[in-house]
Amino acid sequence: MHASGYEPWSAERAAQIIADHQHMAGAAMPILHAIQEAFGFVPDTVVPMIAETLNLSRAEVHGVVTFYHDFRREPPGRHVIKLCAAEACQSVGARALTAYAEDKLGLEMGETSPDGRVTLEPIYCLGLCACAPAGMVNGRLVGRLDTDAIDEIAAEASR
């Protein structure tokens, strides 16, 4: 899940990923997930490749990519911090904690730092509602967050 572990863009590799999944029923979503897992995002150049293979229009594939919050069209920061913004987390102070994290990282929710180091974004529920506030840091689940935990996460993201 760590961005530095992503592969550099390669059309050949993308074509291979598409070929590996094209036999699946309703293949578009599994292909997009696999592309993002490999490259960290879904580059615009891959859209016509998927469209051609699945016999869809570019507009249809573009429509799928842009409908789902998970799919990125730009690379994320090397560290990705997701903080839950849903009701259960709000009931135990997630709003204030999010403001603290924004201040600490110098970023607003949904932003990536200009140096590409860290992305901060909201997530709507990780099912960790009985150990809230919760979040996900570079793919790792974290619960019972407080300002100390945010300080540690920010320190991790400064590396």
């Binding site: 029923a25 309703g26 293949a27 578009a28 979503m29 599994p30 997009l32 997930h33 699945l54 249809e60 429509g63 799928v64 409908f67 789902y68 919050h69 998970d70 799919f71 997530i123 709507y124």
Partner: peptide
């Protein structure tokens, strides 16, 4: 197993079916 992609509305059964078919979750 099939993985969603962060769209809450796909919990609605017909949107979920659209998504499984590889479309927008409408």
């Amino acid at each position: 197993m099939r993985m969603g992609a962060g769209a809450y509305v796909c919990g609605e059964e017909t949107a979920l079916l659209e998504s499984l078919e590889g479309k927008r979750g409408v």
